[in-house]
Amino acid sequence: MKRIYVINAKKLKQIIIIFTALLFALSIAYYERDAIAVFTKGKAKEPQAIYKVDTNEKKVALTFDISWGEMRPGPIIDILQEKNVKDVTFFLSSPWSQRHPETVKKIVEAGFEIGSHGHKYDFYSKYTDEEIRTQIGKAHTILTELTGVKPTLLRLPNGDFDKRVLQIANEMGYTVIQWDTDSKDWLNPGVEQIVNNVVSNVHPGDIILMHASDSCKQTHLALPIIIDKLRAQGYQFVTVSQLLAGSQLKLQEVN
């Protein structure tokens, strides 16, 4: 038995209108798909902190933070020169640098890279935007005057930052540098432990955290052993800037 379906003119008109509108929408989406993709791909990424690079080359960056004291920097600089390690990066606190211009001069003359360790040693994430800019700006002015070079790398005091700090640092021309291997020399756990903390965790593209402040009493004793052991493993020492050049960055997520 055959069935006959009857559609009145009004419903038929509605169906045609809906179908036509749907075809129009699909055609617009099809022709604009490339434009949509361009805007999506071109969306700016938020600034992030760099803690290592992705490379197969056995290159690592030794970094030293200095914010206090006058006893440790000299011996560490001497060891680096004795071991012919020319490419390392020092992150200098600007108040410390003002108090010890001769040591800063020695670092500059040795050809070591200098980054900023900020001005006031505090947790910048608790500051207002204006205060963050003030602290980074003060350090920038002081370090530029003392070294003759404008720093572009920033390691924040206490390694503390949030998205606001990263954004402001980026706007001021800085790349925030963290680390992937912590020597934990600041705990003074013993020379053997400091050496093990580095050697057992090091990897190609690593950024290694060490200190040259007086509170770190064993760094100068562990450093020559670390240098010898890493060289024996085939590692080459480079500055942070050299490590970043031409390498795929590994970024630290920030909530």
Rank of each mutant, 00 (worst) to 15 (best):
K2N: 13
K2W: 06
I4Q: 12
K10I: 14
K13F: 11
T20W: 00
L23W: 01
A29L: 15
R33D: 00
R33C: 00
A35V: 08
F39D: 10
T40P: 00
T40H: 08
T40G: 00
A44T: 08
K45T: 11
I50S: 02
Y51D: 08
Y51I: 07
T55C: 03
T55K: 02
L62Y: 03
D65L: 10
W68N: 10
W68F: 14
E70F: 13
N84G: 04
V88L: 08
F90A: 02
K106H: 09
E109T: 12
G111W: 14
F112S: 03
I114T: 03
K120E: 14
F123R: 10
Y124R: 02
E130G: 02
E131D: 12
E131I: 09
R133I: 07
T134H: 10
Q135W: 04
T141A: 15
L143C: 04
K150Y: 01
T152Y: 04
L154M: 05
L156S: 13
N158H: 13
G159T: 03
F161A: 05
R164D: 11
R164H: 10
L166C: 03
Q167P: 05
I168T: 06
M172G: 06
T175E: 15
K184L: 15
N188Q: 09
N197W: 06
V198E: 05
V198Q: 06
S200L: 13
N201I: 09
V202G: 09
H203W: 11
G205T: 06
L209N: 02
M210L: 14
A212E: 05
D214V: 09
K217Y: 12
A222M: 04
A222E: 01
F237W: 04
V240W: 00
V240R: 02
Q242K: 07
Q242A: 05
S247C: 05
